[in-house]
């Protein structure tokens, strides 16, 4: 199955897409997505309930977070109360090793996103500050990347032996599904997603229309 692991709704301060509209778009455009993960910026959305939309559109809709660290942005899947209390999701300078360690301790899965982004991505920080040993997986395909960034992500991920996944990083409906992640196993809930990510049986896929 294919999930877009990196999307933003109006819950993010810069998001312009309602989740309902994402669902309508996926169905109207017949995108090969089985679902999406909402990764709202610098917060854990504990209140939104998308189960009705899941039933109405036959899509998996899961919630996660995109936090900011001293090595760039990081997606965290499987957020729970323990993790929320482990570090400040609103800060922009959380130490990456602490975020990774907290996620693992709390049964979540954390991985840097758009690592090939110039100046602000994980690999740019590596050049200035050194490698963070606890990184194991990165987002190698990001729908918001400009030419060259994903290529760098793929190259550097291979160099470091990291697994790679994909996400659209969509903030408006028409950009969902540009990049996504194909799983060998079926994922229906957040625990299943975390298990699938730790299992490593997935790959990044680009669904962009040919230019």
């Amino acid at each position: 199955m294919i999930l877009d692991l990196h999307t933003h709704s109006v819950r993010s301060d810069d998001g312009r897409a309602k989740v309902d509209n994402y669902c309508q778009w996926i169905r109207k455009k017949e995108l090969p997505l089985d679902g999406m993960v909402l990764t709202e910026h610098r917060q854990w959305d504990d209140t939104s309930d998308y189960r009705d939309l899941e039933d109405r559109y036959g899509l998996v809709i899961l919630k996660a977070s995109e936090v900011e660290t001293d090595y760039g942005h990081v997606l965290v899947f499987g957020v729970n109360e323990d993790l929320v209390n482990s570090f400040d999701f609103a800060r922009i300078d959380n130490p990456l090793p602490e975020v990774l360690a907290a996620a693992e301790r709390c049964g979540a899965f954390a991985a840097p996103c758009h690592p090939g982004r110039r100046n602000v991505g994980l690999f740019a920080h590596y050049e200035r500050k050194g490698v963070v040993d606890a990184v194991h997986t990165v987002e190698v395909l990001n729908g918001g990347s400009i030419p060259g960034e994903d290529e760098l992500s793929v190259e550097k991920a291979a160099e470091h032996g990291y697994r790679g996944f994909g996400g659209s990083d969509s903030h408006i409906v028409s950009r969902i599904g540009f990049c996504a992640t194909e799983f060998d196993d079926t994922v229906t809930d957040i625990d299943g997603l975390v298990a699938a990510l730790y299992g490593g049986r997935f790959r990044a896929v680009s669904l962009r229309e040919p230019v």
Binding site: D13, H41, R42, E68, A90, I92, R117, V120
Partner: peptide
Amino acid sequence: IYEKTGRSGTMTF
């Protein structure tokens, strides 16, 4: 009042 980071650096809102 909050901050975020992006391509153009750290922004304060």
